[in-house]
Amino acid sequence: MSTFTERLRRHGGTIGLIVIVLLLDVLALSQAGGSVERQLFVGNVMIQVIFVGSVGYLYRIVGVASFGQAIFYGGAAYTVGLAAPHVGSSTLLLLIGVGAATIAAAVVGLFIFRVPGLSFAILTLALGESLFVLARRERWTGGDTGLFGFGAGRLFGLDISTPGAFVASMVVFTSLGMLLLWWLEYSRFGVVLRAIRSSDRRAAALGAGIRTYRYAGFVVAGAVSGVCGSLYALLWNLVSPDILQWSTSGDPIIMTLIGGMGSIVGPVIGCVAFLYLVDIASAITDQWELWVGTILLVVILAAPRGVVGLVDDAVSRVLRRKEEAHRVR
């Protein structure tokens, strides 16, 4: 393989990510004249790709399984909703939401030092469920209806007062969010985490603080989830208990699987594909659970490395054929 193609393969993830972010930005900007419904949908997609990206990061790089990211996502959203009557600035609301999520992740993450992986995953599941029950039950969280009616003004100077303006502003936030996720993977922090995933024996034998790094990774993922949850609340100006359901934690995992668990670009692709799929499916049928479940099962059994895996396989085949043609000549 020529060095150019080698370099291309090696940086495939980064290149793919840049391409997708650009496409998403174009998508967002194209909604300027569209219906509110479409603007809300695309705005949601822009938020979700970062959230799902953070979940993918948690699994793939940090190596921690968590079924409770909804705690930080939904928790931040609720924090925004609860603080909104008292705080006028959307920027400040976002920071408060992220702060709450980060503190929560810092507390929950402590169990990483204490408890084996599967138990930790179940613990996060249980905590997520508890939060869901709490949100539905208590009056101060708005009960089953939730919190609503808070407006949004400007976020770090960008206009988010209408869905249209929000979607346009998301160009900035999604791009920054993706940059952050990229940095978290390629900075020294990410390299250490990847090394730990590669061989924790070797990492320990070199004196690496394995659980400290995993904890840090978990807190960071929680913080990013908090950013997304806060943005969600500001987009819809409403927060209902549904946001704390297990599906909020489980769907990103599915999306990551569909897109491909092995690369930075997989979760993003999976997220977009999944959201559009569900959008189309629920317009057609009421039985979306059955369809989604079937599709997921098919993907797992037939294409375990997801969309990215399929693309990777196809590219390898093409490159191999080209090489053989070269050699024959």
Binding site: G250, I254, L257, E289, L290, V292, G293, T294, L296, L297
Partner: peptide, 12 residues
């Protein structure tokens, strides 16, 4: 995830 898919299908 496969078993989660089955759960979704059962619910459906």
């Amino acid at each position: 995830l496969a078993t989660y898919a089955l759960l979704l299908m059962a619910q459906g």
